[in-house]
Amino acid sequence: MNSTSIITVVLLCIGVLFNLFGCIGLVRLPDVYNRLQSATKCVTLGTCSILLSLVVYFGFNDTGVKSLVAIPLLFFASTVGAHALARGAYYFGVKLGEGTVKDDYKEQVEIEEKKQQLHEIP
């Protein structure tokens, strides 16, 4: 075991641990939006940590550079996907769960749907 392998194993363990937190949140939390929060944040950073361990292990040859390119790709894909899923779920009609304090988005969605209905009738 030299120092490169030790850093690789530590980064891998951190990544899998964060993935575990994200998946526990996916199972435990009460409604769609909260599940999306915990799962997106934790699983994205955990997988970024795993890919970073590949960069440490292989150095700057082709595999290392490929996994370094994959990190921003994964980051943008995950955040844009989370935003699209949250918006789609709200328009689909999933209400916010129990204990909700404040909901500013409802009026905007109602205005938008009224506009669509007016557009469809004539």
Partner: peptide, 26 residues
């Protein structure tokens, strides 16, 4: 309970598979 819940599960599944691919590479 609803379809968006299932979609969140499938999305996160996709990211976990990338982690499996990375570990298999090493």
């Amino acid at each position: 309970p609803t379809i968006p819940d299932r979609m969140v599960g499938i999305d996160i599944f996709g990211v976990l598979v990338v982690g499996i691919c990375a570990i298999l590479t090493i």
